[in-house]
Design a protein around this nucleic acid. Structure first.
Lengths: 223, 223
DNA sequence: GTTTGTGAAAGATTTCACAGCG
DNA sequence: CGCTGTGAAATCTTTCACAAAC
């Protein structure tokens, strides 16, 4: 059992998150005209661990050349394929408040593998309008229709906490198989649906915790 | 060495993120008028692990009553204290684009322990304006001044990737000890500064990966 | 020479399972 | 009785270190 063709769902999130990171670094290297890079120099340049890079990549195959390193272009295209970014995924955003609108226009969301199809909301005064970037706002009642017609793969949930669980059920019913949730709640999703949370409050609280237990006598670093 | 008063910086992020989660659950329970809860019922209700709840709490002390469980109110106030949310932390946001503006008005950011002091930007046409919620936009050149006067503890970085490293240096120079970064780059921060990343693209790519390696014959769950 | 890919070791985290308390 | 708090076991993740490949 060397390199299973389909390492399936048993690849940890830690690994896949790092693959995204590596891919981003490779983009930068390519832009800088670097053709080949070793795991050691990649690690040096971006504060990573060379052994970890090699282990992570080894999960999916052998992409390097001993004594030389990795071809930037080739590794990039391999990772793109592995991450499933070689075909465009259609995304909808549910919730056209400040955050939903900002996400709809966020660069990086609309590029390289993802396409925002529409925003959905239930407030009559928002429906029919568009985000600055031009994404149209539709009634939530049309979610299932649009999801099936456009074969939407990911729903971004950007509604208030109280409304989120209800939205999840709509999304699941509409056949959308993955959810990126920004609402600060613990959601339950029906089994086939994949869920990831982006929890801004938790992130801030984490920093608060670290700040609260700093060495109290924090020297102004002068020397 | 049972319950060190200051478990210091050696508490893992995994633990502190879960503490935030527990705190949120306790808020809901309190709102529902629940006075006491056992780790088992807490776990059931919110899809957590009861052993993990007990282990996590044990890092900081003994908060429960055997045979009974935890007092919702008391545990909530203990966790609030532990997470450093018993005193308001001042927050600035650097970058008054779509995302920065949305974050400035995001509810949950401005409540319970955090206060947004100002937005900063370098585009002349934005300076002097305000977010919808009323947060004023100042020139980035005033960052250090405001940071020191208001004793700002956290800077949220919401600028394009190319600008982020430069902003980090400004922030560090201004003496702000913690950064929440939304720019899709690997940042380097000077040692005392705490950094957390919220990487939207990586989150989406993670979902893309999971979607790419689903069982190809995905049945429409009907039965 | 250099660098990969990888077993084996070390380290971190989660889960188990139960003694002991209320 | 039920439940916490916790050592011990199981599992997962990272790091080490080197043989094999170029």
């Amino acid at each position: 059992m060397r390199h299973p063709r389909t390492p399936g769902a048993d690849v940890s999130d830690l690994v896949t998150s790092r693959l995204s990171l590596y891919l981003r670094c490779l983009d930068l290297l390519d832009r800088d005209g670097v053709a080949t890079i070793s795991s050691l120099r990649l690690a040096d340049r971006y504060d990573l661990s060379s052994a970890q890079i090699r282990k992570d990549l080894a999960t999916f195959g052998e992409f390097g050349v001993r004594g030389v390193g990795y071809s930037v272009r080739e590794l990039r295209s391999r990772l793109t394929r592995i991450l499933g970014l070689d075909r465009d995924l259609k995304v909808v955003i549910v919730g056209a408040g400040n955050l939903g609108m900002a996400l709809a226009d966020y660069r990086g969301f609309n590029r390289e593998g993802f396409r925002i199809v529409a925003l959905f909301d239930n407030a009559a005064e928002r429906i029919g309008r568009r985000s600055r970037g031009g994404v149209q706002i539709l009634s939530i009642s049309r979610l299932a229709e649009v999801a099936r017609r456009e074969v939407v793969q990911i729903a971004v949930v950007a509604v208030p906490a109280e409304a989120a669980q209800g939205v999840v059920e709509e999304v699941a019913k509409a056949g959308i198989p993955a959810i990126l949730n920004f609402a600060p709640v613990q959601l339950r999703v029906p089994p086939p649906v994949k869920l990831r949370n982006v929890d801004l409050k938790t992130q801030l609280e984490n920093l608060a915790f670290r700040l609260a237990r700093r060495r109290p006598a924090q020297a102004r670093s002068a020397s």
